[in-house]
Amino acid sequence: MTQSSACCGGKGGDVTVDLAKVDGIIDKYGRDRAGILGMFQDIQREYRYLPKDAVAHVCRTLGVPLAKGYEVATFFKALSLKPRGKYTIQVCLGTACHLKGGPNVIEQFERELSVKTGDTTADKKFTLESVNCLGACALAPLVRVDEKDFGKTTPGTVKKVVKAF
């Protein structure tokens, strides 16, 4: 495997993967290819994303073609091949939040953090993403940062949310 820092648009910041640790995760699932999703989830928890080298190592160990492993890694939204920030900002764009101005809030976040939706800030602190309903429509438009909820947000409160972390 060639060491490449440009992994799927993720610019730099690729961590060095501790293959022994990855081996431990693979062993946890009995080195069975059926457990590949669980392995990816554990690796994601460890590094906050799926480093390319880790994906390649899992595939090599399990004897799964890399193309198939890549299929799994790209299929699930819970898995990310790009490095993720320390905090994940989820801006709800479900029906209620959408009508109450969610798109304006996410736009303000994009400006405030200088990132596009789905991307991570240069300092690796925040990942901004949109979600389709968090189930708290009474608080629309809702912003969730990791476990913390901010209800009835406006573009004006975006700065406050960012400052809280």
Binding site: M1, S4, C7, C8, K52, P65, L66, A67, K68, G69, Y70, E71, T74, F75, L81
Partner: peptide, 30 residues
């Protein structure tokens, strides 16, 4: 996969962005 036997190709993503590609959209080693 089944005729050539190298599995250099696969799908990536799902829904509107689903496409056929090589792993990591990079030239495949296999």
């Amino acid at each position: 996969e089944s005729v050539v036997g190298v599995s250099a190709l696969g799908l990536s993503g799902k829904g509107p962005v689903k496409k056929v590609t090589t792993p990591f959209d990079e030239p495949s080693e296999t």
